[in-house]
Write a protein that binds this DNA or RNA. Sequence first.
RNA 1: GGAGGGGUUCCCGAGUGGCCAAAGGGGGCAGACUGUAAAUCUGUUGGCAUUGCCUUCGAAGGUUCAAAUCCUUCCCCCUCCA
Length: 407
Amino acid sequence: MSVIDVLRERGFIQQTTHQEPLYELLEREKVTFYVGFDPTADSLHIGHMLPIMAMHHMQEAGHRPIAILGGGTAMIGDPSGRTDMRKMLTEEQIDHNASCFKEQLSRFIDFSDGKALMINNAEWLRDLNYIAFLREVGSQFSVNRMLTAECYKSRMERGLTFIEFNYMLLQSYDFLMLYRKYGCKLQMGGDDQWSNILSGADLIRRLERGEAYGITFPLLTTSSGKKMGKTEAGAVWLDAQKTSPYDFYQYWRNTDDRDVERFLALYTFLPMDEVRRLGSLKDREINEAKKVLAYEVTRLTHGEEAAKEAQKAAEALFGNAGDESAVPAIPLDRNAVVSGLPIADLLVVAKLAPSKSEARRLIAQGGITLNDQKVTDTNQTVTMDDFPGDEALIKKGKKQFQRIILQ
RNA sequence: GGAGGGGUUCCCGAGUGGCCAAAGGGGGCAGACUGUAAAUCUGUUGGCAUUGCCUUCGAAGGUUCAAAUCCUUCCCCCUCCA
């Protein structure tokens, strides 16, 4: 079975250029391909997982992935799909973020022996000569045609700076440089990158009369319309320091019924027969599928051990069978409690409420439970008695838990 | 550069001297119902304090007993013209 078929069956492919020749190319030879990542934060998040999984599938099929870090382009900001101009980063920030990415990517992609590459496009962009660039690349682009691209059209309403307008040329130039230096013939990216990918492939065909192709991934939203990986608390990160494995697990555990099968196909390596079986479960049964999904994705991202712990913690909190010590905890100085601590303050310390007013509101609405006891008095103070074994468990709403350990 | 319009709380959007912490909607949070799902209904949604106080309506000044609302300067955005 061809990788393309695998990717297609699992739901990775939104559009491709030159279907037939691309299909043949991937059958015929080991292809070097690339995916771009913008190093705008110091960790990847769930939104990046789709391309990462796709890269893994491709590598498994014998192709060579290149992860391009947009060190140069991040200094400009891509207008695609954005309503505002993106903030520009300093070189130091970008370099730091890039090194964080590599570590995370290594969990999914084998970088040993040149089986995959990671390249910063600053390598060729930072010292680019403007005149030379205009002559070689700029001459190949028609402004008229660029303006018809959806990503620019929508920005025409709100305003578009010249620097952003150049983004398409720079990304095309990346593709060109990778083609020349590494024989890279394929670019993959989100569907919002379609026009940038197309123009890159065109540029290679025009200047080098070479073969170049593109594949885009669907832009995922959950069935309830949210962007993938975004919660009210912010992005769900792959860095365990920024999003604990437990929270990561919970994100997947709470997947909408309608998304379970799609996500199992995209974010796990389970055989499709199994994916379809799990996805067809109905009603309460589908919770089994969600557990598998949560466990598998957590295992891939944080390792077997962390996944098991997260699962145990979830079982302890939701099924009262399991090991509560696996629940993430935060420390609290026991001196703060000895003389009695207002419950509202405790909630703030536990990060379950952003302010004491909010904490009081939560209590008044019956949303707080302390050690299985619903808190009813806004003015209650907690004392050492509330910390049997030096710890307490606070629950906010139905499924947010925080363990507090005295130190 | 010229003319006009505008910047309000998480977002959209009312509000043109006191009744404004600021209508309404969206989103969020909580409660009920449930399957750690969805949908629905209810409550709530600046901060601190048990009456009350403090901070907020692009920024800084000013007028006034009193300003989101009036005046001055500045910054930013949009439309038309160059």
